[in-house]
Every structure is written in C-alpha cells, then in structure tokens.
C-alpha cells in the first residue's frame, strides 16, 4: 500500500500495465516528454521510450483510429484524450468502429482499446473543459464505461480496463485528481467491472453516485446523519456493465433513492437508473426517486458552482425524499 493522489494512481496503473505486458502502449497529445497536461503519464516516456509513449499530432480521430488499428493487430493501446470535451472528432471512430468491431466481424476482430479522458467540472474550465457526457458512451452497445472515485479504484479499474478484451471508456474525475489521496495497493491491483462499491451503509435512503460526485454525497450524508437520517451511498464504479443487483438491493433495503451526477439531467445516466428502479424496485419504493444533476444548460464558466451538484443540493433532495413518506 502506498498513499497517493488519484492522478498518481492513474500513473501507477499505466506503469504497472506497461511493465506487465509489452503490447501495452500509450498514445495521445502531449503525453510523452511533457507527461500529459495533468501529468498522468509523467515519467513513462523516460521509462518506456518514444515507441511506447507516443506523442501524436493533434487529431482525436487520428488517435482513436490508429489505436483501433493497433488493437486489431494485437496490441493493447491506451489512448489519452486530453479532455473529454475534445473527444468528438473521434466520435465516429468510437461509436461506428471501436464499439462495433467485434460484433460486425462476428467475433473475428476484437478491439481492446482503452480510452482515458479527464471529465467533469469544478476546475473553472468553462464550456469545453468541464463536461460530463458519459451517457453518450453508455448508450452505444459495445463500449464499457468506468469512472473511479478513489485512488485505489483509479488504479484497479484502469488495470482491469487495459486487460479487458473489449473497448473501455475510462473517465477520470479531474476535479479530484489531486484533492483526494488514499492508500493504493502496490503491484497488480485489479478491481472487477460491474461491482459497485458500498461507500457507507445506511437505512433510510440510497444515494447513487460515481466519480467526483461520491465526495459531495458523502459530505451530505454526514450532515444528514446529524438530523437522524441514515444514508447509504453506492459508488457505481462502472456504468457499463452496471451492478444492477447492488442498486436494486440497496433500494429494497432503504425504500428511497437519490441519484447524483454532474451530467445534464435529460437522458443522463440517472434517467436509466431511475427507470431500472421503477421496473425492478417499484414495490419497495416509499417515495418518488429524486435526481440531483447538472442542469439542461451548457456548462457555465462563471456560474460553475451553481451548475454542479453539491452537498446542499443533495441534502435538500434527500430530505424531500424522506419527508415524502
């Protein structure tokens, strides 16, 4: 175990994967000599050389398209998209190609590419350095979507992603890259996909969150405890595959559900979770499901804090849910 930040854990995960398997290589913008704009690849260029830590021209479709070609050939590329907001030039490659290669070839061509991208708000990044658009990828069959909320999970989920036989969109909550530290197991630490993490147990309400939203949910739970409300927090870890069993079981226990994400409300992942709970836990629900999300506006610069879910908004939603029944 070593204490480190979340971005250091990403770095340790990459280093571990590259040491384990010579087929693992990294490509992206400014990831080599510069070590990445967030320093996620710091030191790896020096350690593994220019042919395994590849600085590419400034083209996301080029990065993902060539990563796909490498994976088809048998390598395990890890592509970095500098900000999730810049991934759209590669959207065609991700949605039409990467997600569908195994299926469209009848299993002849698996395509194990991992795409890492920092996502989310809270860094004064405005419209184009803040968005949380995981739902696009969850909606596309053939992609897995992982979002860690702790340093240990950042390393463990990343190693699982890189060794997964299928493509993974790995979204890193850049807001807590450095603000959160935690103990991270040394060596080959892997966290399986599709298993949610029970952050804290509670009896009155289940709060579902992932990535950077687990921290405000926890803060809200502390405040609510002072009011006598016992909050359970479930960190989803992977949206695809989703640990539906854990989600449903939690609501069967508490009877109330609040979903938190910073993505916009309409068709956000909370809509899917709410639908699942309506289908599978309807008779356990004592109150309507509540969603605490970003608004259906573009991501604002000056009003960033107004846009983002925070402990106060979560407390408000939980109180309303508990009061409803």
């Amino acid at each position: 175990m070593t204490e480190m930040t979340l971005v250091q854990a990403v770095n340790r995960g990459l280093e571990e994967a590259m040491r384990q398997d010579p087929d693992v290589l990294l490509l992206g913008e400014d990831i080599g000599v510069n070590g990445g704009v967030f320093r996620a690849t710091e030191g790896l260029f020096k350690q593994f050389g220019a042919d395994r830590v590849i600085d590419t021209p400034l083209s996301e479709t080029g990065i993902v398209g060539t990563a796909i070609g490498m994976a088809l050939y048998g390598l395990k590329p890890v592509a970095e998209i500098q900000f999730l907001d810049f991934i759209y030039p590669a959207f065609d490659q991700i949605v039409s190609e990467l997600a569908k290669f195994r299926y469209r070839s009848g299993g002849q061509y698996p395509c194990p590419v991992t795409i890492r991208a920092p996502y989310g708000g809270g860094i004064k990044g405005g419209l184009y350095h803040s968005q949380s658009t995981e739902a696009y990828f969850c909606h596309t069959a053939g992609l897995k979507v992982a979002i860690p909320s702790t340093p240990a999970d950042a390393k463990g989920l990343l190693l699982t992603a890189i060794h997964d036989p299928d493509p993974v969109i790995f979204l890193e909550p850049k807001r807590i890259y450095r603000s959160v530290t935690g103990e991270v197991p040394d060596g080959d630490h892997r966290v399986p996909f599709g298993r949610a993490r029970l952050v804290r147990e509670g009896d009155d309400v289940s709060v579902f969150a992932y990535g950077a939203m687990v921290a405000p949910a926890t803060e809200a739970a502390d405040a609510l405890a002072a009011e006598g409300i016992s909050t359970e927090i479930v960190d989803l870890r992977t949206l695809v595959p989703l640990d539906e069993e854990a989600v449903v079981a939690s609501v069967e226990k508490t009877g109330r559900a609040v979903v938190v994400h910073e993505a916009a409300r309409t068709c956000g992942f909370g809509a899917e979770l709410s639908a699942i709970l309506a289908e599978k836990a309807f008779f356990s629900l004592k109150a309507p499901i509540a969603r605490v999300t970003g608004y259906d506006t573009p991501f604002p610069y000056a009003l960033e804090n107004a846009y983002l879910p925070n402990p106060e908004k979560i407390v408000h939603a939980v109180r309303a849910t508990v009061k409803a029944a």
């Binding site: 042919d51 080029g62 398209g65 070609g69 050939y73 048998g74 390598l75």
Partner: peptide, 16 residues
Amino acid sequence: TQITQAVGAAMAAQRR
C-alpha cells in the same frame, strides 16, 4: 474510417 486504422495497424507492425 479505415484509413487511420490501416495506419494504426502499420504502427503496430513497426513496433513488432
């Protein structure tokens, strides 16, 4: 879309 992929496969062949 196959154009960048062909380049990626060639980069993999270079590596190997």
